[in-house]
Design a protein around this nucleic acid. Structure first.
Lengths: 191, 191
DNA sequence: CTGCGAGTATACAGACCGGTATGGTTATGT
DNA sequence: ACATAACCATACCGGTCTGTATACTCGCAG
């Protein structure tokens, strides 16, 4: 029963998802074939298709897990470094981002995926939008909890700085982008 | 003589570049094959390779011309709508962006290209960085000419809002992103 | 009139793509 | 003891990928 939905939570399935995630992020989705993924994961294409059904669904699983892990990291980071509401808690999101992205120069996985999948009916597109909307509403919530007026607008502005920083740092190669975005955010919150 | 450098400025060469540009932007670089480009341009692969040498060089030509045209559009827009230095001239960049991107929901061509080419030695990568650096220094210059203190920092902040707006609007599907970025920019310039 | 650049048309090479088929092995739980 | 899930190994399918080869036509400038 349940022929369409597979269970990827097996040792080989985990290896496949780990390998695919690294390769997709590092080289791009279309640049990585299923043969390579199976090879690098020390398994076979048969197992890959038994676990995930198709490359598209594997891509969607990659994006979904990446979003899940980033949110978990961010939540933990905020709880530890900025547990109290206030402007510092908003700025701590940028600190978390900077720490998370250190050593990763391939930018935002969701923006990159959008570049390859956008405009199609690929199952990954829903995950991409979901991530952006989550970050947007997180900023709005944090700004509101900080007692800053007009949190919908100011939170949106903070979110734009967050997104812009990732692009500027990676595609633009501008090394100070995360610090700049944090400074701009502080300025906006104080205005 | 001059075997490596071809001259793409011929009728068929122009058709190929036009067709390739539209397809690359709309569907992504790796998703579009040279056969399709030649077909849609009403010519042959032979001619494509005679004019551009390789797909990689055609991609680089696509990016270079896109940057060139955007800068020309932006320069004209500023000269017409905000000829005098001042904060309004900085904000006019966002107006130009909004007008330019109306009807185009596939985001920044350079960010998209970075998603597919980043981390390689593809000739297009230089064009990508060049564009981001141009926009960065343009913002710094405009902010400086407006007489605003610390133009290096404030210009950088404006640039981050600019980049973030494109991502939020396209990958994130957030329709008000350009207006939000303009408002945030005004707020920053006034602070 | 002749040489050349530009273009058309078609076929091919060699690799890689996503996906399927067949068949055998091992571990586990009933 | 027997089914089942998970896995490995290998071969294959039709299609597409970038890039090259061959051979022809046309217009133009020296």
């Amino acid at each position: 029963m349940c022929a369409t939905v597979r269970n990827p939570h097996t040792p080989a399935g985990a290896r496949i998802l780990d390998t695919a995630s690294a390769l997709f992020y590092e080289r791009g989705i279309r640049a990585v074939g299923v043969d390579l993924i199976a090879d690098e994961a020390g398994t076979t294409k048969k197992t890959l298709y038994d676990r995930f059904g198709s490359k598209d669904e594997l891509v969607a699983a990659y994006l979904a897990r990446r979003a899940e892990r980033w949110i978990a990291f961010l939540t933990d980071y905020l709880a530890e470094h900025a547990p109290e509401p206030g402007p510092q808690r908003v700025l701590a999101v940028m600190d978390a981002l900077k720490e998370r992205m250190s050593g990763q120069d391939r930018g935002c996985a969701f923006v990159n995926a959008f570049a390859e999948l956008g405009g199609t009916d690929h199952p990954g597109n829903a995950v991409i939008r979901e991530d952006k909307h989550y970050m947007r509403s997180l900023f709005i919530r944090l700004v509101g909890e900080a007692g800053i007026p007009d949190p919908a607008a100011v939170g949106a502005h903070a979110h734009l700085l967050y997104e812009g920083a990732i692009v500027a740092r990676t595609a633009g190669g501008l090394e100070g982008a995360y610090d700049e975005a944090r400074a701009a955010m502080a300025r906006l919150l104080a205005a």
